[in-house]
Design a protein around this nucleic acid. Sequence first.
DNA 1: AAACCCAACAACCGCTTCTTG
DNA 2: ACAAGAAGCGGTTGTTGGGTT
Length: 349
Amino acid sequence: MGRAPCCDKANVKRGPWSPEEDAKLKAYIEQNGTGGNWIALPQKIGLKRCGKSCRLRWLNYLRPNIKHGGFSEEEDNIICSLYISIGSRWSIIAAQLPGRTDNDIKNYWNTRLKKKLLGKQRKEQAARRATLRQEINRESQSVMAPGGVLNQQTPNYYWPELPSVNMPAMNPSQDSHFWDQESLRSLLIKLGERFSDDQQELNIATVCPLDGSCTSTRDQPYSSSMNVFSSSGASMNSTDSPCSQLPNTNYAVNGAVGPSTYQGLDGFPVEPHELMYGNQQQLEGLESLYGIMDMANGTNGALSSGESTIWGNVSSLAYPQLVSGLETCLQSLPQNHSSFEVSSYFGQQ
DNA sequence: AAACCCAACAACCGCTTCTTG
DNA sequence: ACAAGAAGCGGTTGTTGGGTT
């Protein structure tokens, strides 16, 4: 037995909406609201449409203050960084872009943004692969060579540490890849406004990327906007974001976050670098992200030894607090996409 | 001018989650 | 606690219009 249809498909009009239908629906909702029941609405106003279709039409097109097209550079950046950190959670992404609908963003991503990013990235990918393989070969040759480090104790699943992919410093002031500060700031402010409706100051632990020391966000710049994921049990507007229903996060200070732990990844079974070096497929998936990260950072994507690498950019990309907050937020949501899943996704493209 | 291709976007479908009785 | 129905969501498909051959 399949699921019962939401409406009588035989008596329901499908396809594009006519201006008359739009006008009817708009006028009724503006005057009476939806009445809390989309299914019954079309009958009330004499529309031969499915209730779901009415809802979609209203939300994506007729609702006031909807913006169509003309995505700004900043919006591009926000979409990219959020996509990279949380995956295709379009409704959450849309919630950060006033006037944009999830459908609009999804379409924009699928038709333009993804291509823009992947096209840019593809060019660089070949060059990077060559470099990486060269490095790997060199490394493995030195390992296998007589007098090399390989011995009986070396587990065969061990992937040698890649010289060009080291855990980077993540200091914005020193990192030319670091996300444009203004975009970053405004995004954080937006998110802060959206997620928090109390003014309590946050007390979030932050791992210093340089030395791994633990500090509170009280000491950080932009602290006013970092109450995004308040540990204070702040009340949140449940209509604004799914994250509003989240339990408190584990960012409370008191040393809860250790130096080697990535924020928001506490629940993750292994540490990022372990995954990264786990196998070559994974690596290539992550490789694919380089281009995107670089695009987001407004650089040409060149990655050479000693430069900031993906992890540095991941951090900068989405601003440690934002990403970690979202990661944690999403751990409590269904259909979670972690950054690692996203990287796998790109690896398959 | 016709055929074809492709990008963009609107709308649909079906699954999941939430709400209510 | 449970079931049913409604709403939300994301993937996919269909349509349209512009560009190219």
